[in-house]
Simulated scan of single mutants.
Amino acid sequence: MAAISNAEDQVSFSSSNNFSVQELVKQPIKTIPQHYVRLDHRQPVRSAPYGGRPSQMLPVIDMNQLVSGKDFDVELEKLHSTCKDWGFFQLVNHGVNSSILEKVKQEVEKFYELPLEEKMKYKIREGEAEGEGYGTMERDGGKFDWADRFFMTINPIHRRKPHLFPELPSSFRNALETYILEMQNLGKKLLCLMAKALKIDEKEMMEYFDDGMQSLRMTYYPPCPQPELVMGITPHSDSSLITIVHQLNGVDGLYVYKDGVWFPVSFLPNALVVNVGDNLEIFSNGVYRSIEHKVVPNAEKERLSVGFFINPKFDVGVGPSRSLISPQNPPLFKRVSLEQYVKGFFSQKLNVKSYLQHMRIHDNGEDNSA
């Protein structure tokens, strides 16, 4: 069993987010470097809630039933209640071709098999506030995630960083382009269905997000000899409207926080996991809930995942749906530009749901919206 190390020279540590955990574990390690020890998040994990398997607790939504099923109204109500009560669900029969998912898996695996100097061509650059590029993210207190990740804005296309997506190997780039189109189509269907469930005009929802800000995060979580001491990704809620997660290699590690307990998510075969982000909680004026989640690495196996994040348009800003606001249902959140929201969110260093609380209108009615 590995011990906690206090020696700062155990690794070639870089505070510029350029250190690779993947490189660290290529040789067996006897100690967990102190940069990664995260005893502040050792909250209880429930292994078998209410006598059942944990995977049974995360709701399952069938896209077939929502698109053409005879039980559409029942499934739509299930989607609505799931977004209100859980903010997280597994999506089956989602319509994304398995060959597209397999190709992305192969290309992400090939990327992480590259020599470090090749991956470092895409490194996070100094002053990059949103952390775009390849690297390991630093959190509050100088602690680092036990993960290497490659994060990029991919839409609108003119916002793609010229040294990132355009410079990827052609096979990788082509696989991602196909995958992105599938995620965009799936995300549009889901958000329009959510608008219907919320009784919002579909046009208003489309005007809010269609061709809006979208990003992609491909993450490699190396095995860790003492996973209870580290954090694959810090507990947080996403800033997005919705996030679609594809777990690439069948290794679990995602946990969601509900009713004071961390529930492990065991992905169903061929399922995608979808979660409500802070932006959708704001847009729904608090009807839907973003939920805190984290990743814990596996003791023996690597885990790879791709997260696709769908956000509003830059020119419409962030705020509650105007059709949901009335004297009887006043706005619970401020209205700000997306640029202001993104800068504020990333300034919080992924600190649980703190920025969502910052967006709330206080009891005195204070609102800093434009």
Score class of each variant (00 low, 15 high):
residue 279 N to E: 14
residue 253 G to W: 00
residue 81 S to H: 11
residue 270 N to L: 11
residue 266 S to Y: 04
residue 346 F to S: 05
residue 187 G to A: 03
residue 56 Q to H: 14
residue 264 P to Q: 12
residue 353 K to L: 05
residue 347 S to F: 01
residue 161 K to D: 03
residue 22 Q to L: 12
residue 292 E to G: 04
residue 300 E to C: 05
residue 227 P to T: 08
residue 194 M to T: 07
residue 294 K to C: 12
residue 341 Y to L: 07
residue 370 A to P: 15
residue 153 T to V: 14
residue 199 K to E: 13
residue 140 D to M: 10
residue 276 V to R: 01
residue 331 P to T: 10
residue 127 G to C: 05
residue 271 A to P: 06
residue 223 P to V: 05
residue 7 A to H: 14
residue 213 M to W: 00
residue 161 K to N: 07
residue 120 M to R: 15
residue 330 P to G: 07
residue 97 N to T: 13
residue 7 A to N: 15
residue 169 P to V: 05
residue 231 M to C: 11
residue 166 P to R: 04
residue 198 L to S: 05
residue 99 S to D: 14
residue 325 I to M: 10
residue 271 A to R: 03
residue 296 V to M: 12
residue 249 N to C: 08
residue 236 H to E: 07
residue 314 F to E: 14
residue 41 H to R: 10
residue 198 L to Q: 02
residue 353 K to G: 03
residue 17 N to E: 15
residue 325 I to Y: 02
residue 216 L to E: 03
residue 110 K to W: 02
residue 43 Q to P: 01
residue 18 N to A: 14
residue 228 E to G: 08
residue 113 E to K: 15
residue 73 D to K: 13
residue 164 L to S: 07
residue 42 R to A: 09
residue 86 W to Q: 06
residue 274 V to H: 00
residue 320 P to R: 00
residue 251 V to H: 02
residue 280 L to P: 05
residue 72 F to W: 05
residue 304 L to V: 06
residue 58 L to A: 04
residue 345 F to T: 10
residue 296 V to I: 15
